[in-house]
């Protein structure tokens, strides 16, 4: 699906890289532990998280994650937004909690990834 659909499905705010909303994503992972995210490998992925520090964006960058969705109304700091803008990672924020947000995205066709490289 396009990132734009995630915005609509979750009623999310776009925090940066609005020009990339038509990029395609095919899989997602959800975690507040970045080492879990680092064990997740899939292309064209979305990260759903309740954690909002710059290491979230850096982790996304390491894993070629195209879009980060902050749940529970979390907003990242300005450093995170600036880093994401530089690297072309779309940041979204929604008021939903982690579980319903994941359910909605899964239902709409985003799948989980494999652990192995």
């Amino acid at each position: 699906m396009k990132i734009r659909e995630i915005v609509e499905l979750l009623g999310a705010k776009v925090l940066c890289c609005e020009e990339d909303l038509d990029n395609e994503v095919t899989s997602a992972c959800a975690s507040d532990m970045m080492s879990d995210v680092l064990a997740f490998v899939k292309d064209q992925a979305v990260l759903v998280t309740g954690l909002a520090n710059p290491q979230v964006v850096r982790t996304a960058l390491m894993m070629d994650i195209r879009c980060v969705v902050y749940v529970r109304g979390k907003n990242p700091d300005s450093l995170s937004v600036e880093l994401a803008r530089q690297k072309g990672i779309v940041l979204l924020s929604c008021d939903k909690r982690m579980f319903p947000a994941c359910g909605i995205l899964y239902d709409a066709g985003l799948k989980g990834g494999d652990l192995a490289v």
Partner: peptide, 16 residues
């Protein structure tokens, strides 16, 4: 609280 320190760092490094 910053998302690290779950005891997965060294195991991930060995694994990958």
């Amino acid at each position: 609280s910053l998302g690290f320190g779950a005891g997965m760092g060294l195991p991930n490094m060995k694994k990958y």
